[in-house]
Simulated scan of single mutants.
Amino acid sequence: MRAAGFPAGEWQTAGVRMSHFWTLMDDEFGAAYAGSLARDHVIGALGNRTAAQALADGEPPRAVWEALCVDMDVPPARRLGRDTRVARGAEGGRSGR
C-alpha cells in the first residue's frame, strides 16, 4: 500500500498513527505537559494553529509531530521516540522463567 501523493515504488517512511503521535508526545514532554502543549502552543508552520487544532483539521500526525519537534527544538536523535519499548509479543523481561 502506498501513501497518497507518492509514486508507486518510491521509498517512503511510514506515517505516524495518532496513537504513536501521543506516545511520542508523552515520551518527549511527559504525559502531563504533552496535553497542555498540544492544546496551547501555537505553531507557525501549522498555519498558526496548535497541534490539537491541526490534528482536528485533518493534518497528518507525522507532519504535526515534525512541526512540533522543529518548533520545540527536539534534537533529531529523539524524534523517533524511545527505543526502550519491548516488542509486541516479546517476554519483556518477565522474571521467573
Rank of each mutant, 00 (worst) to 15 (best):
V64D: 03
W65Q: 05
L68F: 03
D83W: 08
R85W: 08
P76H: 10
T50A: 00
A63S: 14
A87H: 12
D73R: 06
G47L: 06
R49L: 09
V74S: 02
M72N: 09
P75M: 10
A56V: 05
V64C: 06
W65T: 12
E59M: 12
I43A: 02
E66L: 12
V70T: 14
V74E: 07
A67M: 05
Q53V: 01
D73M: 08
D57H: 06
T84A: 14
V64R: 02
L80F: 07
A45N: 07
D73W: 09
D71S: 05
H41V: 12
V70A: 15
R62M: 10
A67H: 05
G81E: 12
P76T: 11
V86L: 09
L80T: 15
A67R: 04
T84I: 13
R88D: 10
G58H: 12
A52P: 00
A54I: 03
G47D: 10
R82C: 08
A67P: 04
P75V: 14
D57W: 06
R82Q: 14
G44N: 02
L55T: 02
W65N: 08
R82D: 14
V64G: 04
G44L: 01
D57Y: 08
W65A: 13
G47A: 03
L68S: 03
R82K: 13
A63D: 12
G47E: 07
R79W: 07
A52N: 01
V42D: 00
